[in-house]
């Protein structure tokens, strides 16, 4: 089935089988490997991307469901050609070790910052309920992101 998905401002068209998930389209058709695959059940958040500005778990969506939609992956996140506030906060506080989970945290964190203007502890805890980190641990991530504000 022919699908066209706009990823980070660029249209990717391909003839795909309906049984292909969105995360596979992103990684294998568009060749964007920053979106990771962890649990495949919707629990870990490694595969998080934005659709029309809101987070989704791309392992639980078929590529055909996303036909015609506008998607932002980790490769499309940043500011003025550099890291955005969330990326800056995580990297400067070294709140990442293996970084397998980090692209998901950055995608969801970027949405949460856009939505709330500031990452308070409550906003962080509520926004990242569906993101799992198995090595850095949550305290360093919360500490790094607490108080981050949107600078326009």
């Amino acid at each position: 089935m022919k699908v066209t998905i706009n990823i980070n401002g660029k249209d990717y068209s391909a003839d795909v089988e309906p049984r292909m998930t969105l995360v596979d389209f992103i990684r294998d058709v568009a060749g964007l490997k920053g979106t990771h695959v962890g649990c495949e059940t919707g629990h870990c958040g490694a595969c998080s991307v934005l659709i029309d500005g809101r987070p989704v778990k791309s392992c639980l969506m078929l590529a055909v469901q996303a036909n015609g939609k506008r998607i932002t992956t980790i490769e499309g996140i940043g500011k003025d050609g550099g890291p955005n506030e969330v990326q800056m906060a995580l990297s400067s506080s070294k709140a990442l070790q293996c970084a397998f989970c980090s692209t998901g945290f950055v995608v969801v964190g970027t949405w949460a910052l856009e939505e709330n203007g500031e990452l308070t502890e409550d906003v962080i805890k509520e926004s990242f309920i569906g993101n799992v980190c198995r090595c850095t641990g949550y305290e360093p991530i919360i500490k790094a992101l607490r108080g981050v504000r949107k600078n326009d």
Partner: peptide, 9 residues
């Protein structure tokens, strides 16, 4: 319910 991503979908 669940998390922001599941609520989007």
């Amino acid at each position: 319910i669940a998390d922001p991503a599941i609520r989007t979908m």
